[in-house]
Design a protein around this nucleic acid. Structure first.
Lengths: 238, 238
DNA sequence: GCCGAAATGACAATTTGGTGACAATTATCT
DNA sequence: AGATAATTGTCACCAAATTGTCATTTCGGC
């Protein structure tokens, strides 16, 4: 099993994708496709290690070559699906390997792409599969104080009048709302809200907090909702 | 075209089902299945007469064999779906004919059964498809501002004068209307509107939006209905 | 092969978010 | 307490990302 970035899997907060593929050239391609989109990628060269990795429970989707050493890809697929039915599995294979596409879907795979495939196509299918399996319809509205937020409409009102938040501000606010009361360090926020491909300074966080406060906080001296925890980070208190 | 009962179709108040199937033996079977359940059945032996019958607008569902003389079943299916998207189409075929279940659903079919099938199974699927259609309260017309859209007729008027929208533009607009107020990312739109196996760039979405705006929006500086949500996507606000 | 529609790519226009400086605040040390 | 160091608040500017728009190519149905 190869962690393609050398990052620490334990603390990597990106969405993790497991790739089971034996051909080194294809490994590289797949790794790039997903990493470029901000996903964490683990590559396994054969079915057994793939299953082992899958069982760590760390992954949000599995991309699987059908032809593998040791265990056939189809058995890997069946096993995964029998152990965790809602795990999205996307099969990658040469056309000749999928004489019978029905069989393929009977394995329980969610979708498949045939080589050669476009990165965009693969990406789209994996993301669609993950979306489909996402059962938590994600909180859509939330209110605190005199503020009402609708995350799916991306609208916000304060004391009845609508206020404008940018996409990033929504994302940040959402993370705070979802982790209310907890103290969140700037590093954590950078990883979780900004994502893994950008490495801004921690000053950037302060700036966004500032803007959120200007838009949401009452005009008092002390921030009421987005509180500063000196030396540690910030905390949202509804 | 055979009216299987000899009843007068004009006055038959039963729910009408159109069966397109060339094999006489299968015709009889299908006819019985539906008639026993209290449906009116019309059987067509080939694709062309099937389409003609469909266009009479009398039917609540179409049951279609995939292998037909003259026109392939798949073309019949595509045509029906392009003319009336919400018409339930259930495909009947031998297993060998459905090498690709995905392809089949990509034709736009609502469901399929493979021969041999149990009457109950077929019945259940047809009824489910009809139910599903009714659930979406047959959004046929919709109006906002000075625009009136008829999605089933695929016509649009603006300030009284008719304007021309392409099929894609209708589909896109429909999706926006059905998800009014919600922010829709380009990725979601590509998956939901463009469909499953085309992978255009996200730039394509902007272009279609542009065209819709040119046709629907008033000549003001800011778009009124199809709004841009910077960093997130678009949002339809009636 | 022709025609309209859709996709692509390039460029301009726009908005946002990051950076760095400096002030203000809080903590720590003597 | 006072001084000092560390952390955070705030601002304005600029770079980068995002989107609008148009010209061009490609695609798909007759």
């Amino acid at each position: 099993m190869i962690d393609m970035d050398g990052t620490d899997l334990q603390t990597d907060s990106r969405v993790q994708i497991l790739v089971v593929e034996d051909d080194p050239r294809m490994q590289k391609i797949l790794q790039r496709v997903f990493r470029d989109q901000g996903y964490g990628v683990t590559v396994c060269g054969d079915g057994q290690s793939g299953l082992d990795a899958f069982r760590s429970g760390r992954y949000s989707a599995v991309v699987l070559d059908l032809v593998l050493p040791n265990i056939f890809g189809r058995d890997v697929c069946k096993t995964i699906k029998s152990e965790q039915e809602d795990m999205p599995v996307i099969i990658v294979s040469a056309i000749s390997e999928v004489a019978d596409k029905v069989l393929l879907l009977e394995l329980g795979a969610d979708d498949y792409v045939t080589k050669p495939f476009s990165p965009r196509e693969l990406m789209a299918r994996v993301q669609a599969a993950m979306r489909r399996r996402q059962k938590t319809p994600a909180m859509t509205t939330y209110s605190f104080g005199d503020c009402e937020i609708d995350f799916s409409k991306m609208t916000a009102r304060r004391a009845g009048t609508s206020i404008t938040l940018t996409a990033h501000e929504f994302k940040l606010l959402k993370y705070f709302v979802e982790h209310a009361e907890r103290v969140l360090s700037r590093d954590v926020l950078l990883n979780e809200v900004w994502g893994y491909n950008s490495y801004p300074t921690t000053r950037t966080v302060d700036n966004q907090i500032l803007k959120l406060r200007q838009k949401l906080e009452p005009e008092s001296a002390e921030p009421r909702y987005l509180r500063t925890v000196y030396g540690a980070g910030y905390k949202f208190v509804p």
